[in-house]
């Protein structure tokens, strides 16, 4: 499986009423088994790029091809093939983890996935009956990933997946991403975190609405000066 993102453009109307271009002719090529890390300053458009690729926001221009099939014009295919884990988990706080999963999975699939699938791997069985409002940040993130994986999408987009999580939770989440990639999935994650960037096979820096390849060698100082 391979993806080709071409000439993506996206602009917002700013507070002053003028349109501000966030993405300007952005291109990206990637294939299954890769983990793409995107770094960049706050507000440079990383989250917007992931939202556009997941179909949560509409691109002003550009195309998103998966194995030659244009996905922007096929919302159903886009929704099935691309999963987005947003920075703030999109969950219902008053409901239990199980009830949140039931919004996305058929009941029988949850039992199967908890037993020997992605939900089991994420350890969601440990807090299945707990209300989301009582879960820790790490648990919410794992649940959020679990909800996204209901279609087993070949492309997983993660927006700062380990932000504000402790080391154990980070290792837990990143361990899952490594496993996902090793099984042929394509993960694209945005991050400021060296620990997250280390698991990526390729790195990009987002600047002026475009992606530039970057060779990350663990030197954070060098990375910061490149942003």
């Amino acid at each position: 499986m391979e993806i080709k993102v071409r000439n993506i453009e996206k602009s917002y109307r700013s507070g002053t009423g003028r349109r501000k271009k966030i993405l300007q002719g952005l291109d990206l090529d990637a294939a299954g088994g890769e983990c793409i890390g995107i770094a960049g300053k706050n507000g440079c458009g990383k989250s917007t790029l992931l939202s556009v690729l997941a179909g949560v926001q509409k691109a002003d221009a550009g195309s998103f091809l998966m194995d030659g099939t244009e996905l922007f014009s096929r919302p159903r295919d886009l929704s099935r093939n691309v999963g987005l884990v947003p920075q703030a988990p999109a969950l219902m706080d008053e409901l239990s983890a199980l009830d949140n999963l039931l919004m996305w999975y058929p009941k029988r699939d949850i039992i199967k996935e908890l037993d020997s699938g992605v939900l089991g791997m994420l350890g969601i069985g440990d807090f299945l009956r707990t209300r989301v409002r009582n879960l820790s940040g790490g648990m919410k993130k794992r649940l959020s990933i679990g909800c996204v994986m209901h279609t087993m999408p070949p492309v997983l987009l993660l927006d700062e997946p380990c932000a504000a999580l402790d080391l154990e939770c980070r290792e837990n989440i990143l361990g899952y991403v490594r496993d996902y990639v090793s099984k042929g999935g394509l993960a694209v994650l945005t991050s400021h975190d060296p620990m997250e960037l280390e698991i990526c096979t390729r790195h990009y820096i987002m600047k002026d609405g475009r992606l530039s390849p970057y060779s990350y060698d663990g030197d954070v100082t060098k990375l910061v000066s490149s942003l």
């Binding site: 179909g55 949560v56 929704s79 987005l84 947003p86 988990p89």
Partner: peptide
């Protein structure tokens, strides 16, 4: 409480899922 606790983020995701 039930009205206010709804998540705009979830609304956006739901909208993208049809």
């Amino acid at each position: 409480g039930a009205f206010i606790s709804r998540r705009d983020g979830l609304s956006k995701v739901m909208a993208s899922k049809g």
